[in-house]
Simulated scan of single mutants.
Amino acid sequence: MTITNTAPDTVGHLLRGWRERRRMTQLQLAVDAAISTRHLSFVETGRSRPTPEMIDRLADTLEVPLRERNALFLSAGYAPHYAQHDLQAPELRAVADAFRTLLDAHMPHPALVLDRWWDVVDRNAATDVLLDGCAPELLEPPVNAIRISLHPDGLAPRIRNLSQWRAFLLTQVRHRLERTADPRLQELLDEVESYPSEPRTDAATSDVIVPLRLRVGNEELSFFSITASVLSAVDATIEDLHIEAFYPADSATTAAIRESASMSKA
């Protein structure tokens, strides 16, 4: 009996890994992708080389991100099908300008543009209130929003509901790690999980979202965030970017921000 071994970097091995990560059987994936189970089995074991169209069809079904989809094409011997421009490339200028417009329009509320690793790509001036008091080394580029939020020399000492906010952020990192299988996210998760933590506390009964309760001077400001991304992206860099926009979670925070904004204009 001949047993076909699939090398770890072959397209079949990678596709099988994505299928298992999505907790799908071969039958489920074959049905959803409208191909035969036999063909899928041959692809996964390396007995059949998938066409670029087949790779895209399976990747669509498995919701493989564009960056990892390019790795599938390369492992099958094809050129990457999706662009992956540098953030400063002229091709990304229109998107970068659109993000900047949104950041400016969100003033006087904090907003940031983050990449898939939560590194800060751009931000508006209102985020200064969030970063005030953080250790200088944490503010060295690239500033990582997860690290600076949970590090004991970052925002952590000023976050009044640290255990709740920490649990929320770690869940977000785990979800993205599950979606992308990105080793850099695993490194980030391992790092921030090692930071000192306190026992988990229950959310206030009045909470309808997880707030960020931050001590600023003698006040406590409370925010919630909304995330926005470019759903039509066909460039891996653009797909990885998203805006994290913070809004006041209570009337006291709204009043404090308005007062601060009016004083800065005076």
Rank of each mutant, 00 (worst) to 15 (best):
V230W: 13
T227M: 12
D202I: 00
S225C: 10
F246A: 13
V210T: 13
R215Q: 15
S206N: 10
F246V: 09
R179G: 03
F168A: 10
T254Q: 12
V210W: 05
L189M: 10
V192R: 00
S149D: 10
V216D: 11
E193G: 05
V143G: 00
C134A: 15
P136F: 02
L214Q: 09
A261Y: 08
F246P: 00
I238A: 07
T254W: 03
L212A: 09
G133P: 03
E259C: 13
P211K: 06
S197L: 08
V230N: 13
S260D: 14
V210H: 03
S194C: 07
R184D: 15
L177H: 08
I148Q: 02
T205S: 13
F246K: 00
L241G: 01
L138K: 03
V230A: 10
V234Q: 14
S260V: 06
I243P: 01
L170F: 08
Q186N: 12
E178A: 14
H151N: 10
P183D: 12
I226R: 09
A181M: 08
R213H: 02
L231W: 04
E191Q: 14
S229Q: 13
H151D: 12
E178I: 01
P183Q: 04
P183N: 09
R215S: 12
A261L: 11
D202T: 02
V173C: 08
V230Q: 09
